[in-house]
Design a protein around this nucleic acid. Structure first.
Lengths: 144, 144
DNA sequence: TCCTAAACTAACGTTAACGTAATCTGAAAT
DNA sequence: ATTTCAGATTACGTTAACGTTAGTTTAGGA
């Protein structure tokens, strides 16, 4: 049996840079399943939950995704994990292939979305770069 | 004198894929200076304004920036343009160099911000990629 | 045991970014 | 000249993502 270290609310907030209200809220809207409690009702966060939270925050920051969209992404990921975990089991293999394909499809869509975002970022970066270059050139001309 | 084509609200909304309310709102919070009007008070958008709007929407979508942040970015860009435009004029050259440096600094910060975002996107993309690969490998193993 | 800091629940408050409804005026085709 | 549709203004409504306050309970060290 593996020892599972648990973290208090304070430890979680400090590590993640968010408030307890945010933790409560995420739990409230179903982003955090199965948060453990002490006998007295105080929350205890596992390492995996903290990683999940970290993932959520990354998705928010980088993709600019809403919590609803994040919920969908997480769900797709979990589904995939479930399928993979049960893949060597007993039941209908064709059905499993189908489910796996579906999950892979969703992942592919997310990746495509990320790629599109990166392309746009790249284009925008080039635009700002040009402005900066022109500014620097202007300064050089003036000096020389 | 160059002919300046102007566009109606409807043309603008269709071209940009936003509602008139959004146009009004952006004007209201100062994102769109000097929107022209007909004699009767109807708005007329110039090509430059439409491009500005397009830029705003890109910044929103790609950077996930708030309208406040976008206002700041646009302001920085305008400042830089003003400085560049007056750079060959008469007044204090040292002061101009300073202003130009300042503006360039802000641009540099935006670019750095974009770069950081792209790095995070890249890392995230790799993460999703791995999951996808594992899913595909699993399917292959099962078949073979 | 007692005390204080941390956590709990419940509920109302807040801000950004628009949506929507109502009423009125302008534009342009017939 | 009239109709009709687009546009203007005003103002209240909405949603997401938390913030904040209040009153109560738990945890853990002196």
């Amino acid at each position: 049996m593996t020892i599972s270290v648990k973290f208090t609310v304070e430890e979680a907030t400090e590590r993640l840079g968010i408030t307890s209200r945010t933790l409560h809220y995420y739990e409230e809207i179903g982003l955090l399943p199965d948060v453990a409690r002490t006998e007295g009702g105080h929350r205890l966060y596992s390492e995996e939950t903290l990683e999940r939270l970290s993932h959520i925050l990354r998705l928010k920051l980088v993709l600019g995704a809403s919590l609803q969209e994040i919920r969908d992404i997480l769900q797709a990921e979990e589904e995939l994990e479930t399928i993979k975990a049960s893949y060597r089991g007993e039941s209908d293999m064709d059905e499993r292939d189908r489910l796996l394909d579906e999950a892979a499809d969703r992942l592919q869509k997310i990746i495509t979305h990320i790629d599109e975002k990166m392309e746009k970022l790249q284009a925008m970066r080039l635009g700002f770069d040009k402005r900066l270059e022109r500014a620097r050139r202007l300064k050089q001309e003036h000096r020389g």
